[in-house]
Nucleic acid binder design. Structure first.
Length: 150
DNA sequence: GACGACTTGTTAT
DNA sequence: ATAACAAGTCGTC
């Protein structure tokens, strides 16, 4: 019951879905095999294409599977609430979940589904901060959403 | 801007 | 069980 498709953006954005939940989104140099079965997958592909086309899309409606600790789950859940085109700092996010910036950064690194869980909207107090798929991707995603301060 | 101290959950020893 | 680390931050020089 697994599905997959890719979007062309810079290189490729590969998306994997299982049992109606998004389980992996990765930035790769080659596309995955297309295998779309459900309406959800179809919709998500359209939404992602629109997103990379510059449209304001809200991905918080899509179910994701987070296979991680309670803490990481909590952090990522909080991240999903950040609206399109807005950014918050690691510190701010830490305060929302009652933790510290350092721990939050470490949790974000474990996000299996970038874009769907918009961890690129979490930035350092003075600068961009890190990104598991490379800071350049983070910069481009923010630019796409109309954030030019980085 | 560089450097150390502080932080807190995860990971390695 | 304990030490080392990380997508951070703050004060000080």
């Amino acid at each position: 019951m697994s599905e997959s498709f890719f979007i062309r953006w810079d290189s490729f954005v590969n998306v994997f879905i299982e049992n109606g939940e998004v389980i992996v989104v990765s930035f790769d140099d080659r596309p995955c095999r297309i295998n779309i079965k459900s309406k959800t997958a179809e919709m998500l592909k359209k939404d992602l294409e629109a997103y990379f086309n510059g449209e304001t899309i809200d991905f918080s409606v899509y179910p994701v599977r987070i296979d991680a600790s309670e803490f990481v789950t909590k952090v990522l859940k909080e991240v999903r609430k950040i609206p399109y085109g807005e950014t918050i700092t690691y510190k701010e996010l830490a305060e929302r979940v009652g933790s510290s910036p350092r721990a939050v950064g470490q949790a974000l690194k474990k996000n299996p589904v970038p874009i769907i869980v918009p961890c690129h909207r979490v930035v350092a107090k003075n600068g961009l901060g890190g990104f598991s798929s490379g800071v350049e991707v983070k910069r481009k995603l923010l630019k796409l959403e109309g954030v030019f301060n980085f």
